[in-house]
């Protein structure tokens, strides 16, 4: 039962990992996505459609994001309701439209997670291979495609059954399939690299106090 918080965190982290993996999946045979150096960050916009089994229409949202190997991931939903999710060394924090912060999960495990994404961004396959079976291919329009299937007995396996990502210079689409037959489709656009420091509006989101 001491697992409760960890289990919840794992579920949230698994979802975030799917989102975070967007810029790390490439095949060695094809042009990999642009690497992010330690002094850089990746910025872009997203559209997410959340398909829930038994519901006809998906839950659609869009917004922007920023990912830095050194500080973490900020996922900012702008529409239909503003809200931000931050993943950094300290855990997962949700910030509502009034600036109230809510720590969803805390713990040192998140440092490892940020390191994992960063390692992948640096072109290191090792961390992914420990947790996923990886299948690489090329799509009809010459984009690369990578399918990540969580290995058994990993934290992610209980939350995500498959991650499929496609892209060229950057990841363009991600699909996260869940054990409950739900799935999230994420389309990324307007991506580009910038040099640190982070833009002030994002930097502020990473440093606020949790309420």
């Amino acid at each position: 039962m001491t697992l409760l918080r960890r289990l919840i965190a794992s579920g949230m982290m698994a979802a975030l990992f799917g989102a975070g993996v967007f810029s790390c999946a490439w095949a060695t045979e094809i042009t990999p996505p642009a690497k992010i150096n330690q002094d850089q960050y990746l910025r872009g916009s997203f559209t997410m459609e959340r398909y829930l089994a038994g519901f006809d229409k998906p839950l659609r949202s869009n917004g922007d994001f920023i990912l830095s190997p050194t500080t973490g991931l900020v996922w900012r939903t702008l529409d239909p309701f503003p809200g931000t999710t931050v993943l950094d060394d300290h855990g997962i924090t949700r910030i509502d439209d009034q600036g109230n912060r809510d720590a969803l999960a805390r713990g040192d495990q998140f440092r490892q997670f940020v390191e994992l994404i960063s390692a992948v961004l640096a072109g290191n396959w090792q961390p992914l291979e420990q947790r996923f079976d990886i299948t690489k291919s090329t799509t009809a329009d010459n984009a690369w495609q990578i399918i990540l299937t969580p290995k058994d007995n990993t934290a992610i396996a209980s939350q995500i059954t498959k991650i499929t990502a496609t892209g060229n210079d950057y990841v363009q689409t991600i699909q996260l399939e869940k054990p409950s037959d739900d799935h999230d489709d994420i389309i990324l656009a307007d991506q580009g690299l910038g040099n640190l420091p982070l833009p002030p509006e994002f930097a502020a989101l990473l440093t606020g106090t949790v309420k």
Partner: peptide, 16 residues
């Protein structure tokens, strides 16, 4: 507001 945000958050245990 938290429930609404949960619907669209990437970090969620939400399911059908």
């Amino acid at each position: 507001r938290r429930a609404i945000q949960n619907l669209y958050s990437p970090a969620t245990t939400l399911s059908s």
